[in-house]
Design a protein around this nucleic acid. Structure first.
Length: 222
DNA sequence: ACTTGATCATAC
DNA sequence: GTATGATCAAGT
C-alpha cells in the first residue's frame, strides 16, 4: 500500500475501513488473525499500519512521515471509552530528555495524531473499527500535557527517580516500558553517579484520550 | 472495578 | 539496548 500523500487521502482510507471487522481487514491485507493478543499485543496497530499505508513500524519517525502524522489505535468499549492507556515514547534517563516542553519528543509525537478506535468484541476478529479522528491538541489539552511533562522532566533532571510514580500526572503519566521489570537503562543519579534504572516511558491516561474521542466518537454501523 | 506495574513480539 | 506496536495481569 502506497503511503497517503495528504491528510485528506489518509482520512479517506480511514473512512473506507470504518465499520469493518478486524478479520476482514486482515484478510484484505493477507494477514493471519492470532487467537488473542496475549502474545501479539501490537497486532492491531501493525494491521492498521498495513491497511492505511504507513511505513515501517520500527523506525523512529511518524507512521506517515510524508504528512507528519502519527497513528494510534485505541481499544474502546461500546460507549466509545478507551479501555487502556496509550504509550507515547520512552523517557530517556541519561540527561537527553531536557526540561523544555517545546523541544520534547512527546510534544512532537502528539502534534498530529490519527486516533483509530477499535471496539471490543466477543473475539479479536469480530472487533470493529470505529471512525478515525485526526487530532491536534487544543490549548487546554496542550497545557495539561505540558504541566505534566514539565513535572516529570524536572524529577528526572534531578535524578530523583524514586519520586516517579504512575499516580502522578493528570493526563500524561510515567510507567515502566520494556520487556520486563529487569529492563534497565543508564542514568545519572541525584549524586551524579552513573547507575542503572528501570526503563520507563510516557503514557496518556485513558481519561485523556477519552475526552478527545468524546468530541467525535460514533459506533460503527452494523 | 480500575489503575499501576509488568510484560509480549519484532526490527535494528 | 532502543525503537516500533501495545495489552496483560497483579495489586489495591
Amino acid at each position: 500500500m502506497r503511503p497517503p500523500a495528504s491528510e485528506a487521502e489518509l482520512m479517506e482510507r480511514a473512512r473506507e475501513w470504518a465499520g469493518w471487522p478486524l478479520a476482514a481487514i486482515a484478510a484484505e491485507c493477507g494477514v493471519q488473525v492470532p487467537a488473542d493478543l496475549r502474545r501479539a499485543k501490537g497486532w492491531i496497530g501493525q494491521l492498521l499500519e498495513a491497511a492505511l499505508g504507513a511505513t515501517g513500524s520500527s523506525l523512529p519517525e511518524p507512521d506517515f512521515p510524508g504528512i507528519g502524522v502519527e497513528m494510534k489505535t485505541l481499544p474502546v468499549n461500546e460507549v466509545g471509552q478507551p479501555q487502556e492507556s496509550t504509550y507515547v515514547c520512552t523517557a530517556p534517563l541519561d540527561g537527553s530528555l531536557g526540561t523544555r516542553w517545546e523541544a520534547s519528543w512527546v510534544r512532537r509525537k502528539l502534534s498530529r495524531v490519527l486516533w483509530v478506535p477499535v471496539a471490543m468484541g466477543s473475539s479479536l476478529g469480530e472487533r470493529r473499527l470505529g471512525q478515525a479522528l485526526l487530532w491536534s491538541p487544543n490549548a487546554e489539552e496542550e497545557g495539561l500535557l505540558r504541566t505534566d511533562w514539565e513535572e516529570h522532566a524536572a524529577t528526572i533532571a534531578l535524578g530523583e527517580l524514586w519520586q516517579l510514580d504512575a499516580r502522578r500526572g493528570r493526563a500524561l503519566q510515567i510507567r515502566p516500558k520494556g520487556a520486563s521489570a529487569d529492563s534497565t537503562t543508564w542514568t545519572l543519579d541525584d549524586e551524579g553517579e552513573w547507575t542503572r534504572a528501570q526503563a520507563i516511558g510516557f503514557y496518556l491516561r485513558a481519561s485523556f484520550t477519552g475526552g478527545i474521542l468524546a468530541r467525535n466518537f460514533r459506533l460503527p454501523k452494523g
